[in-house]
Amino acid sequence: MSINVAVFFGKETADLDTRFIRAYADLGFEVQLHPELTLTESSASGCIYLLVTKTPPHFLRLAPDLPLLIMFGYGVHKRQKKETRSRQWPPRGVGGYSYEASSRSSAGRSDAAGAMQIVSMAILAKETEGHFYVDGDDTARTGDLAVQQAVLELARFDRVYFDADVHPFESWPPVNGSSTFRWPPIIEPPKSPIPTVQKRRTLFRYKFSWLHVPGIVLITYFLIVTLLYS
């Protein structure tokens, strides 16, 4: 199932690209934006590209040393002064806003791309003091609440490989929408589930052996004799 997200930027849009990267750092990531892209302008490709060079230490990784290339749909436009509102849009909870950004991911996306899409859009809502809206919700959320809930999307990666089905980073894709680009092969997920190690409980540290039987019999004999004649 695809995910459709809209963010309505507040007034705090200055130096947004830098603050976006810093917000990811606060969550334990090191990311970079495509050098030819900015978060307040759409690209011809209609996508955002992120280079992920570090993930939180508790994340499961198949190839922990490989940088990753994450992509998801992204478009943004500045609100016009005479732009009209309808009963359906913007959604309930949204007041004044400066930009409207939208993002859509495909149904076949990796787990990492889906999570990074939600987290990225939530960060934009928070950093601009705007609002975050997922298609199908009754009302938009504040940026602070959106980030709190988006972080829950990351909780799965202590039991699911973050880099499964993700392309390793080799070079930046073109953003002009016309040039060809050869994507590197994805990092293949394991065919078997992640093994879980269960500790065996032992009630006694003594390890029994049949070689001990004669000694046990002899000790038992002397104990019985001692009890009978005492």
Rank of each mutant, 00 (worst) to 15 (best):
E100A: 15
K207H: 10
V217W: 14
C47F: 13
Y74M: 01
Y74V: 09
K207S: 13
S2E: 12
G28C: 07
S179Q: 15
W183V: 14
R109F: 02
V147M: 15
Y133I: 01
T40E: 10
A113I: 03
F169K: 04
T196F: 07
T38K: 06
T180A: 06
T53R: 12
Y206C: 14
V151R: 12
D158M: 10
R182Y: 10
A112Y: 00
N4S: 12
S43W: 02
S179G: 11
A23G: 03
G75C: 04
W210V: 09
S179T: 13
H131L: 06
L228E: 11
R182K: 11
V151Y: 01
R61T: 12
S98A: 09
S171I: 03
A113Q: 13
P173W: 02
D137W: 15
P168D: 04
A115C: 01
G95I: 05
I21P: 02
T196N: 13
T139H: 15
D26M: 03
M116W: 04
G46Q: 10
P67R: 07
F29N: 08
A164G: 10
A146L: 00
Q88C: 13
L16C: 02
I216H: 05
G75E: 02
V31A: 09
D17S: 11
W183G: 09
K191P: 08
V76D: 00
I48K: 00
S86N: 04
F59M: 09
G130H: 08
R22V: 02
G177V: 03
D111L: 11
S86V: 06
Y221M: 13
A113F: 00
S209C: 00
L50I: 13
Q117S: 02
Q148H: 10
G215Q: 08
N176L: 06
Y229W: 15
F162H: 00
L223H: 11
E36G: 05
G177D: 02
E129S: 08
